Simulated assay, not measured.
Amino acid sequence: MSQTVKAVIARSEGADVELVDILVPDPGPGEAVVKVQSCGVCHTDLHYREGGINDEFPFLLGHEAAGHVEAVGEGVTDVAPGDFVILNWRAVCGQCRACAKGEPQYCFDTHNATQAMTLADGDMAGTPLTPALGIGAFAEKTLVAAGQCTKVDPSADAAAVGLLGCGVMAGYGAAVNTGGVTRGDSIAVIGCGGVGDAAIAGAHIAGATTIIAVDTDPRKLEIAKGFGATHVVDASSEDTVERIRELTGGFGADVVVEAVGLPQTYEQAFYARDLAGTVVLVGVPTPEKEVTLPMIEIFGRGGSLKSSWYGDCLPSRDFPMLVDLYQQGRFDLDAFVTERIGLGDVESAFDKMHSGDVLRSVVMV
């Protein structure tokens, strides 16, 4: 039997979000209903509202979430009612060619719940909702594929560990999983929002000795130091490429993470890496963005140009490990939480995001 719960939707492109009643069905085979405890406000949610992802309105927003499993459907064995879980948007299939090669972090056939959550009231009652990244967690409860639930230590603070569901995992994984940063390496991170700061924190945990934060906002650069940056570059007044080279003995960084998603910052990343170094694109570009590089430079510099999708993570492997690091005091997830807000405060959180006043607003349900 369906349940009626409060949730935040984007009804049409560019319109303010609304707090409405929605219907959440009982879980079917392979599905789970999760009582949401916390959900971070991510730029991706704003992209959905602005029509930057697709036009499948109305959207049920929210995806950086943690909560407790309330009910599971037939065939679900990995989680059970009462489990404390972080939600992920890449439930691996276990059968595609990536999974068959033992690389499930690249699964090409990830899945979501098959049933739809719907609007409960008004002229549009019964209208199916499109959940952001297949999750839709700006809600009291949400329906997901059971594989989207990763069980972790229930004593962890939901507001902090829920952020592993997207931005923090993307940044940490870009540096560690995709970039392969390790002991003694140098890394530069261009763009010091939540994703960039997570890349800095990941590099620090991995043992990088030179960690360079690059941004145009002095406030963000100061925050980056707290996550482990050893040097900062103010791109509004300094030549990013030359400064990174100066800080790495004239050579460039072993790894450069681009966490902005713009052609000009990607070009800076390309030229700021050492010979045989690695560039990792984790900033999400809009579809019209293009970059042009001389092929002789691509060939002559060697190394790797990579993109990092969700930090190339495997939630079942990475979430519990990172929660353990958090519990040990080695990964300060609390520092990403700027404020705790209610479901009715999402629109104002978007405004604060635009002005750069928050690292993460976290909805507490």
Rank of each mutant, 00 (worst) to 15 (best):
T286M: 12
D254W: 01
L19A: 05
L281T: 11
A276S: 13
Q264K: 14
L305F: 15
G122D: 07
A15T: 04
A349H: 03
L221Y: 06
G207H: 00
D55S: 15
D357R: 13
A276D: 14
Q328D: 15
T178G: 04
L325D: 03
Y48W: 08
L19N: 02
D332P: 15
V34N: 05
D254I: 01
D153P: 04
C313F: 05
T216E: 04
P27Y: 05
E74D: 15
A213R: 08
T130I: 03
S12W: 00
V8E: 04
I187C: 01
G207Y: 00
W309D: 10
D215S: 15
M1D: 01
V241G: 04
G342K: 09
E56I: 09
F59Q: 04
G283I: 11
T142F: 02
R11T: 09
G300P: 12
R245V: 07
V144P: 08
V17N: 06
I190M: 06
D157L: 09
F331Q: 01
P315K: 10
P25R: 03
M295I: 12
T210L: 11
D318K: 02
T216G: 13
E339A: 14
T118G: 10
F138Q: 02
A276G: 01
V260R: 00
G94E: 01
V346A: 09
A175R: 04
V323A: 00
T240H: 08
A174N: 05
K6G: 12
K101W: 03
G94K: 00
A156W: 03
D26F: 03
Y106M: 12
S348D: 15
V363I: 13
V76H: 11
S355M: 08
P287F: 13
L305N: 14
F138G: 07
V85N: 07
V257F: 06
G277Y: 10
A160I: 02
I22F: 09
D45T: 02
V363M: 06
V358Q: 08
F319H: 06
A198I: 14
D274N: 14
G277N: 09
I135D: 02
V291I: 15
D318E: 10
H354K: 14
D234A: 08
L343E: 01
V284P: 01
G52D: 13
D21W: 01
Y266K: 02
N177A: 11
I190W: 03
H43I: 04
L61M: 14
I53C: 12
M1L: 06
K6H: 12
E18Q: 15
E258R: 07
D334N: 15
I341V: 15
L359N: 12
V34R: 06
G302P: 09
A120P: 11
K101R: 14
C96N: 03
M124K: 06
G122N: 08
Q105I: 04
R340I: 14
T240I: 14
D45A: 05
Q268M: 10
D123G: 09
M295Q: 05
G228H: 12
F84M: 10
A175I: 02
F84N: 07
L333E: 01
G73F: 04
A15G: 01
A206S: 12
A253Y: 05
A158G: 11
E70I: 12
G73D: 03
G165A: 13
Q95E: 08
K35D: 10
S348N: 14
N54T: 11
S155H: 02
A120G: 12
Q115A: 15
V17L: 07
L119V: 12
G40M: 07
P27H: 04
